[in-house]
């Protein structure tokens, strides 16, 4: 599955999976998410559903990676770090469906003796995970470090990170926001899941982020905005972001998403940030999400 990384940083994406295929995978991943969260009656469906299109595009189209031969160092591969670790359901589903570990293992999510911990960890040896996350604000620093290691190794691959918008309230994010441009980490594409909601309510009510675009620009990032729940727009956004790498600045994608996207009753509210559907709600959700690749 690995494609040799080109020396030219103006590379195209790794695979030519069609928009229709990716949408179909995303539908199945959304089914996995609600079933996993229902299965253990805990976890975070809202942000997971909102970031499904992004992660499906990343793992099935954009990144050059080798799921069957996972190595921690990932030399010659693109790397992804999930900084907002609470959206582990979407991460695990995408990892399993792209071949990092058996699909059956999704059943064990958040249960005793599982490699699929509530928040992702390297500790249980789950292939595809390179860093524990959950305590917020740490993944951008890690991504910068990993990107610098790639530069030292002469490895032209890219590093991707994902962050929640509420997570941007953590101070460490802004330390890293200085360091990325400061160290000219131009092989890094960070993305913010800009859904405007967090556990306690709307981000604007909890602690407003203000003009995010201007903030990141002022810190020295190359910023673009992207619609995160429109697969064609996501692919175009990634293409554009990749074209901006290798130019002396890290790239920031501000991705507009809808928390709970794909399940009507989970949308338009922060209420589904971190609660599980009951049996009737699960049935309702699954009716809206066609089974395309077969449930686990």
């Amino acid at each position: 599955m690995t494609t040799p990384a080109p020396s030219d940083t103006h590379r195209s994406t790794a695979k030519s999976t069609s928009v229709e295929e990716l949408k179909s995978i995303a539908g199945q991943v959304r089914r996995d998410i609600v079933r996993m969260v229902h299965g253990c009656q805990s976890g975070h469906p809202g942000g997971s559903l909102g970031c499904t299109d992004f992660l499906v595009a990343l793992y099935f189209h954009v990144m050059r990676h080798d799921p069957e031969n996972f190595s921690m160092d990932g030399i010659g591969e693109d790397l992804f770090f999930l900084s907002n670790g609470h959206i582990s359901p979407v991460f695990y589903s995408v990892l399993a469906r792209s071949g990092y570990f058996p699909l059956e293992e999704l059943k064990t999510f958040r249960k005793i003796d599982s490699r699929l911990q509530g928040h992702p960890t390297t500790h249980e040896g789950l292939p595809g995970v390179r860093m524990a996350s959950g305590s917020l604000g740490q993944g951008l620093s890690v991504g910068i470090g990993a990107a610098l290691a790639k530069k030292l190794n002469g490895d032209p691959s890219l590093v991707f990170t994902l962050h929640g918008d509420g997570e941007l309230q953590e101070g460490q994010i802004w330390e890293a926001a200085l360091a990325g441009p400061g160290k000219k980490v131009d092989n890094l594409i960070a993305t913010v899941d800009w859904n405007g909601r967090q556990i306690d309510g709307d981000v604007d009510d909890v602690m407003p982020l203000g003009d995010l675009n201007a903030k990141w620009k002022a810190f020295g990032w190359d910023v673009l905005e992207m619609k995160g729940n429109d697969m064609a727009a996501v692919l175009a956004g990634f293409e554009e972001a990749i074209s901006r790498t290798g130019k002396g600045k890290p790239v920031m994608i501000l991705m507009r998403t809808e928390m709970g996207a794909g399940v009507d009753f989970m949308m338009g509210t922060h209420e589904w940030h971190g609660i599980a559907p009951n049996d009737a709600q699960l049935a309702d959700a699954l009716k809206q999400l066609p089974e395309t690749l077969g449930d686990y």
Partner: peptide, 12 residues
């Protein structure tokens, strides 16, 4: 804080 995170990333 960022230094510790960057150090962790550099090990990868």
């Amino acid at each position: 804080a960022n230094m510790m995170g960057m150090a962790a990333g550099l090990t990868i």
